[in-house]
Simulated assay, not measured.
Amino acid sequence: MTWLKWGLAGLVGLGVLWAALSVYGGWRWQQRTAGLVSDLAAARSPLRVSRYDPAVLVDLPPPVQRFFKAALTPGQPLVTGVSLAHDGTFNMGEASDNWKVFASQQEVETSRPGFVWNGTIRMAPGVPVRVHDAYVAGEGVLLPAILGLFKLTEMRGRGAIAQGEAMRWLAEAAWYPTALLPGQGVTWSPIDDRSALATLTDGDVTISLTFRFGADDLIAGVRAEARGRTVVGAVVPTPWEGRWSDYQRQGGMLVPMTGEVAWVLPEGEKPYWRGRVTALSYRFAD
């Protein structure tokens, strides 16, 4: 039975080592997250105006005007930043679906546009993959790591990765809708009575998304004809869509509490994120 005792001792030792790596990885990850959030705050710039005036809507496409009138309260302060928490499921599969539970925290700045998403995906009991997805000072960041220590990939910089992350910031502006107002860095072009094109320029990054508005005049979905999708370490331009629902009043604004995003592949849609907001806190202009 000596072999059995040694085997059990080895398993216990591996368990202790794994637990220690998990704790250390969590600590290291917190340091990385704090650094990104600090860089995000350092890039902040002041807003030109502090309150919403419906008079600024006069030259916007009709569906965009209706959206602001439905979502905002006249005279309310503009959003400067947001802290959010989410939970939901993330599809880790390529050839077939493989949905895993995630939880995340996110910090957003509206001027200069940027965000830091800090997520934890439970791949298996005791095996978390920690993920940074961010747009900070004109650079995109994508870093998933097992336990926060063992990197699965790492992408950071300008070009396609920055454009893709800027698209995410713009798509998620339904959570901070005053950032879509005239004079806040986004311009609008008409498409039809239920959709319009939003264009954001931030430094050398310029991106556009089609916004679709529902019968309630709120943002029902967004679409990019070519957003960077990571496939085997390469970034491949791919159509992408997001959908928002369950609007509730928060901070004087109507914002969505649930959403889904998907890649639009030749064989059909491939959803990969389904989540809901579990906590939401705004910072407003004085």
Rank of each mutant, 00 (worst) to 15 (best):
M1D: 14
K5W: 13
W6L: 15
L8N: 06
L8Y: 05
A9V: 12
V12Y: 08
G13Y: 00
L14E: 09
L14Y: 10
G15D: 06
W18T: 15
A20L: 14
G26I: 08
R28I: 03
R28L: 12
W29S: 03
W29C: 05
R32Q: 14
G35C: 06
L36N: 10
V37M: 12
D39Y: 05
A41C: 02
A43W: 08
A43C: 09
L47H: 13
R48D: 15
V49T: 15
Q65F: 00
R66D: 13
K69D: 12
P74W: 07
L78N: 05
L78Q: 08
T80I: 10
V82Q: 10
V82M: 13
L84P: 12
H86W: 11
H86T: 07
D87E: 12
D87G: 03
M92P: 10
A95Q: 15
N98V: 14
V101W: 11
F102C: 00
A103I: 11
S104M: 13
E107D: 15
V108M: 08
V108H: 07
E109W: 07
T120Y: 06
T120M: 13
I121C: 07
M123I: 15
P125D: 04
P128H: 09
V129S: 06
V131Y: 07
V131T: 09
V136D: 02
A137P: 05
I146V: 15
L149C: 01
F150K: 03
M155Q: 15
A160L: 12
I161W: 02
G164I: 00
G164H: 00
G164F: 00
E165N: 09
M167K: 11
W169M: 07
A171F: 10
W175T: 04
Y176A: 01
Y176F: 15
L180E: 06
P182I: 11
Q184Y: 01
G185R: 02
W188H: 03
S189G: 03
I191Q: 12
R194C: 05
L197F: 02
T199Y: 06
L209F: 04
T210W: 06
F211V: 08
G214P: 03
A215I: 04
I219F: 05
G221L: 03
V222W: 04
R223I: 11
E225M: 10
A226Q: 08
R229L: 03
V231P: 01
V231T: 11
A234F: 11
S245F: 11
D246Y: 01
Y247L: 00
Q250H: 14
G252T: 10
M253W: 08
L254D: 12
T258Y: 00
E260R: 08
P266V: 04
E267F: 10
E269T: 14
P271T: 02
P271Q: 09
P271D: 09
Y272T: 05
Y272V: 05
W273Y: 13
R274N: 07
R274V: 01
R276I: 00
R276N: 09
R276Q: 12
V277K: 00
A279L: 01
S281L: 12
F284C: 00
A285L: 08
A285M: 09
